[in-house]
Design a protein around this nucleic acid. Structure first.
Lengths: 151, 151
DNA sequence: GCGAAATGTTAGCCAAGGCTAACAATCTGC
DNA sequence: GCAGATTGTTAGCCTTGGCTAACATTTCGC
């Protein structure tokens, strides 16, 4: 797997070409730029389900940010076609937003259940899942799901 | 594990208090703000090991960004005490930078080996590890390491 | 050792995602 | 139905992390 005789840095030293490496980082950056939108859409879907509507104040509370930050982010989501909103009214997901929410929920669920299967306590599992879910490829997700099913 | 009779949203519905939820997101945001610094420091350590020195041009190539972006980021790292640099000279890690690099390398290794143990192909494993490593708690890391050792 | 190529820096632009302060609208209780 | 509380918006500021264009320095080839 690795015939570097030195082996000093690590047992999994990264000998990929700089280009491949650069691609990986670009992928990570792309994922990062989607993360916030995914978190919002997922939360909005949840609020609509749980309370019948999604209000900025509830989003702010649950995201741990201030109301103006929520307003600005919601404007971006609307611009990007994920939600619709009217002044002083609660928020609705577009078809596209609902699709994204569903997909995120699915990924979140699998990651969370995977971590729980490994034996992680629920609170840490929830925290880690929140961060990890946006960085898991389709292939990895399948492996996680298979592991959960097997356990 | 979950006695919610509805069970309509998901098998792992999130009934944490809004405050706990907000904390989780704050943690994720904190992790995000550290990510770039960690990636740079890790890469700088690697370059120093592999080539004897870390030059901005190599960082730019491997991170997939332009030279001015690297320059600006390096200024922030210097401001934050992770590296030292002189104009037109190559980059050095401070004691603190070296410690961070070591820690990151360790986390990266475990996550990567864990993904490989699950049966993921090396290229995808490397890509996913890059994104995941910053969002894995100490507890989770231990579980990953234990899994690798067991397999 | 000089000129060209490679590398590094500076200036200035942009968008995202935070914040506070100030104001506007809606909702609630009486 | 109005006053006060709650909620929502707007304006303006900041940092981060991207970019291009322009310029400065260093290094390399000969």
């Amino acid at each position: 797997m690795n015939d570097d005789p030195h082996h000093t840095l690590s047992a999994t030293s990264d000998d990929r070409s700089p280009d491949l490496r650069a691609e990986a980082f670009q992928g990570v950056r792309a994922a990062r730029s989607r993360e916030l939108a995914e978190d919002y859409v997922e939360l909005i879907a949840e609020l609509i389900h749980a309370q019948g509507e999604a209000r900025p104040v509830d989003i702010a509370t649950r995201m741990g940010v201030t109301a103006p930050t929520v307003a600005k982010t919601l404007d971006r989501l609307a611009r990007d076609g994920l939600i619709t909103r009217a002044k002083y009214r609660s928020i609705f997901l577009t078809e596209e937003g609902r699709a994204l929410a569903k997909e995120c929920r699915h990924r979140h669920d699998i990651v969370l259940r995977f971590l729980l299967s490994l034996g992680l306590d629920p609170e840490t599992a929830e925290r880690d899942a929140e961060g990890i879910e946006h960085h898991v490829s389709e292939r990895t997700l399948e492996l996680f799901a298979a592991f959960v099913a097997r356990s």
